[in-house]
Design a protein around this nucleic acid. Structure first.
Lengths: 227, 227
DNA sequence: GACATAATTTAGCTAAACCTAAATTACCAC
DNA sequence: GTGGTAATTTAGGTTTAGCTAAATTATGTC
């Protein structure tokens, strides 16, 4: 009934980072990788992991000198925060005239502070959307996540058409550039065999091919066929 | 350009409290009054006031054993946070189906975390409203506040009609009760001469009079004539 | 003017979440 | 299996914002 804060902003950020870095296969994540991702020192990570593991209920399974995995409870909280983030992005974009390069920063702050009630009202207002503006799927309220097979643009074969399924939301400048080039979720493209160091040649529809820098390409994921 | 946090949540809360407690005449506020209002110990207040005064630029003028007043900078920040709060209340109420007893709690948390951009978009979406759902006026972006003359229901004379200008948003149960009784901002009422200990008799329109407990009445402000 | 009571401040402590610098442990090559 | 480097943890320190208990200052009464 109450919205007692079960976790702090810092804790939420660690849980999200562990989920993101552990990937689909849910590998153990190293302190160093977390430190890098979160922009803090490795020593701070160790301290926090010890606290997360010591909590009752525990958010992570932690073995020193090896790495961390999320516990069931930790994974659940991470998915809740990600749901908040993506619903907020969709809402800011669709209802408050945010462009797709502006939504991430605002959502990143607010995701920690919205109540369950607000989460529900936003979801209802949006008609329970499945995707955020960058094509990432929004976890359901019960923690279920839609299974999707994605492949990085850089490792897609030439001459095989594919649709963009999602793009990284981290860098506003890159997002503006993608939009300018027409690289949006849903866009169908073909990789041309003109790959040079540092860039990939792609064709969209019947236009002439576009050169996409590796940096930009790194943020682009394609829908991989079933399995 | 950036949204560097110029103040923390706790600091914001102190500034708002000082503004509210100092009233229209901007009296100095005592540590005890602040402690009571904020739900912390007086010793904690002293510590915080010392920090607020030591800041550069300073948020308050503080004299020990006497009290605090807001500095220009402190007043400005307090009004900005109050603007956030009231815009959020209006937005949650008008766009996200919040009832008027639900908006305060959510706005109280979010007011500290919305960016200037979001403040502006919400204001635009609402058409720059002047009042929140409880009738409190929303400070303008430049810090201007509409002058209003309000008088507590308890000190209004009998048989003189008056309109409710605002009601306290602090207590959800009281707000539900006010709504049930039709005591809303804009409602015109007359105080009847049947005042007993602990309650006030009021008539709304041509209905039969209603007995309003002093507690409820304490949250009701009437529009006082010009002066 | 002395004294009791109330208001306020000081002193010293705690918990988060970060930091730096100094150990320690793991891993890989030879 | 010994060494060197990289990864990780420990130890000790900082800031923010709260706490309790003890000291101090202010206020009001006789």
């Amino acid at each position: 009934m109450s919205d007692a804060p079960q976790s702090t902003e810092a804790v939420d950020d660690y849980l999200k980072a562990i989920l993101e870095l552990s990937g689909v296969d849910e590998d153990a994540v190293t302190s160093n990788a977390l430190a890098e991702h979160l922009g803090v020192r490795a020593a701070s990570v160790t301290g926090m992991l010890q606290k997360l593991a010591a909590r009752e209920p525990s958010f992570v399974h932690y073995q020193k000198h090896y790495g961390v995995r999320l516990s069931v409870v930790g994974r659940r909280r991470a998915l809740e925060v990600i749901r908040h983030h993506r619903l907020l992005e969709r809402f800011l974009h669709d209802f408050l005239d945010y462009s797709w390069d502006e939504v991430h920063e605002e959502a990143e702050r607010l995701e920690h502070y919205i109540s369950e009630r607000l989460e529900d009202r936003i979801a209802a207002k949006l008609g329970d959307p499945a995707l955020d503006p960058h094509g990432h799927s929004i976890p359901e309220k019960d923690g279920a996540v839609a299974e999707r097979h994605e492949v990085a643009l850089a490792s897609w074969p030439c001459d095989v058409p594919a649709a963009i399924s999602s793009v990284s939301d981290r860098n506003p400048a890159e997002l503006r550039e993608m939009k300018r080039l027409g690289l949006l979720p849903g866009t169908v493209l073909v990789v041309e065999p003109g790959t040079r160091a540092g860039s990939i040649l792609v064709r969209i529809g019947s236009d002439s091919p576009t050169r996409v820098s590796s940096e930009l390409a790194a943020g682009i994921m394609l829908a991989g066929g079933p399995r």
